[in-house]
């Protein structure tokens, strides 16, 4: 059985649905990428699962952790899961740390909460964690405040804080988007190393397909609040089946090929208040016909082991040609 299992998860903000029934399983120890553009619901899925959305959000469906239901569970029950079983780090590390508390105290809070460590023991453990995530001279800098660290270092501190509860699953929500290229590389490396060392599972939420492909085992692509495709990383990147996934790949400039014009996806992401009928991607899709604009495709298993929600997935020959 999957460690975390999401079934038909739906979220609406002030009556506007933004997540239209997500099914997702995470096994112990695996790394899953969640890919999509802003507003596709990739972050909302996990904020909803952990009860971190603001009060105006209406969440239905089911999220189970080792069989224990989280949606509709008591606040105390969900608080026991957060940080201890499932930890989360965010996009903007500098504002994700509380500016008025020393970082040692912020890590210590997790240690006290999840491992009962206090005083000198907590301090020693916090220093060990900061060392582990690569903060230089941690013993001295544990008493500094967040503003005294750079963005990359703040993200390391966030990761140390997440590790403090020894979680089974780490949700990394765009953890490198706000960072510079060489720092991004450092953080990706750190996350991959920590996963290897601790054996925790990881969900890596990102719009950066390259980053996802470099550290995940499999990936799920979302569009307008739905999953449109999922597959093993190799298969997905070798031969994307959904026209949207394919469009995303084509839109990214290639470092090695000719400096040719890019192939954008025409049009824009639909407004959740006015979703098109049928497949939400159909207005931008080159393969869509009248049927796509009326009926909504379900996520269906494919011969290559992946799943895709499209009536006319890109067939194999054309894919090979494209990647030849």
């Amino acid at each position: 059985m999957a460690f975390v299992s999401i079934r038909d998860l739906r979220v609406a903000f002030s009556g506007v649905p933004v997540l239209h029934g997500i099914d997702l399983d995470i096994a112990r120890g695996e790394a899953v990428g969640l890919v999509g553009e802003s507003g596709c619901g990739k972050s909302v899925t996990w904020l909803a699962a952990l009860g971190l959305l603001p009060g105006k959000a209406r969440v239905t469906g089911s999220v189970t952790l080792d069989g224990e239901e989280l949606i509709g569970a008591s606040r105390r029950a969900v608080e026991k899961v957060r940080g201890a079983r499932i930890a989360m780090i965010f996009q903007d590390p500098s504002s994700s740390l509380n500016p008025v508390h020393r970082i040692g105290r912020q890590i210590g809070e997790s240690l006290a909460l999840h491992r009962g460590l206090r005083g000198a023991a907590a301090r020693a453990e916090a220093i060990r964690l900061l060392d582990m995530v690569g903060i230089p001279s941690a013993a001295k800098r544990i008493d500094l405040y967040p503003h005294e660290f750079s963005g990359g270092q703040c993200q390391r501190i966030m990761i140390a804080m997440a590790l403090a509860g020894q979680p089974d699953l780490l949700i990394a929500d765009e953890p490198t988007t706000a960072l510079d290229a060489t720092i991004q590389a450092q953080i990706l490396d750190l996350l991959a190393r920590l996963r290897h060392e601790t054996g925790m599972a990881m969900v890596f939420i990102s719009h950066d397909l390259g980053a996802v492909s470099s550290i995940c085992d499999r990936a799920t692509v979302m569009y307008a609040g739905r999953i449109v495709e999922r597959a093993e990383i190799g298969a997905l990147f070798r031969a994307p089946m959904h026209p949207y996934t394919r469009g995303l790949f084509d839109a990214i400039p290639d470092l090695d090929a000719e400096r040719a014009r890019l192939a954008p996806i025409e049009g824009t992401v639909p407004d959740p208040k006015a979703l098109p009928a049928g497949c939400a991607f159909s207005p931008r899709c080159v393969r869509a016909n009248g049927f796509c604009r009326m009926e909504e495709p379900d996520l269906k298993p494919q011969p290559n082991g992946g799943e895709v929600a499209c009536f006319y997935p890109i067939p194999a020959p054309q894919r090979e040609e494209a990647f030849a």
Partner: peptide, 26 residues
């Protein structure tokens, strides 16, 4: 509405502590 409040919640702090230790001082 600040991100660090979400961090404090994601940490598993009880809501009371989120309010008293993280929100009020700010």
């Amino acid at each position: 509405g600040q991100p660090y409040i979400r961090t404090a919640m994601a940490k598993g702090l009880p809501w009371r502590d989120v309010v008293w230790r993280h929100a009020l001082p700010n």
